[in-house]
Design a protein around this nucleic acid. Structure first.
Lengths: 109, 109
DNA sequence: CGGGATCCTCACAGATACTG
DNA sequence: CAGTATCTGTGAGGATCCCG
């Protein structure tokens, strides 16, 4: 990640940037999800992309990965307590997204 | 931008994504800035990159551009009232960035 | 089902040079 | 000073195949 000593906003971008990360975190706020389940929820990225984003989030202590010794294999992802502290960010983003979408209806698109 | 009817979080990512956009908006929360001034503040992107990000933010109604007929030329960028509604998002990001940086000091480096 | 290994590509960011 | 126009590269992300 190599965050370094920069503006805190930039730091957050480094951690939550990535094409799917915000959606992943947002969805995991509702509780643990299996890999395939999560994949569908966030908009169907490639396996590789989802895996990589999850690994990075894991490395940053945002997401926890739990492997169940079952057949068929099951892997669950969840937010760590620290990951949950991102809730305000995601909620703010969600709220603003709603406002933006509504605005596109009133002003000219 | 082609936002379409998707998850509000994704919508916000579409608008505020981009490598420099969060920093641009964050800096403009303090008031209008000239092009070169803004450029230095956000971490010295290329002129082209900054221009493109600003144009997109303009198109989305986040940023206003004012050209002064002076010599030397002066162009000021500021947040529109609507752009200011992004303040909560940026503040949440800033706050979380601080927490993350502090966490890196306590947990393993 | 989850995901590692490979290969690919294309969007986006940087560098440079020129203009009003 | 604040751009525009090209040209170039880099790497995040997609497609595919294979494996436990």
């Amino acid at each position: 990640m190599t965050v370094g000593r920069k503006c805190p906003v930039e730091t957050t971008v480094d951690v939550t940037g990535g094409k799917w990360k915000p959606m992943i975190i947002y969805r995991l706020l509702d509780g643990p999800r299996r890999f395939g389940e999560l994949r569908r929820l966030v908009g169907d990225p490639s396996q590789r992309s989802l895996t990589m984003q999850l690994r990075e989030l894991e490395a940053d202590g945002i997401v926890a990965r739990e492997v169940f010794a079952e057949v068929p294999p099951r892997v669950e992802y969840s937010l760590t307590p620290f990951g949950q502290t991102l809730a305000p960010v995601l909620m703010a983003m969600r709220d603003w997204g709603v406002a933006f979408q509504e605005r596109r209806l009133s002003t000219k698109g």
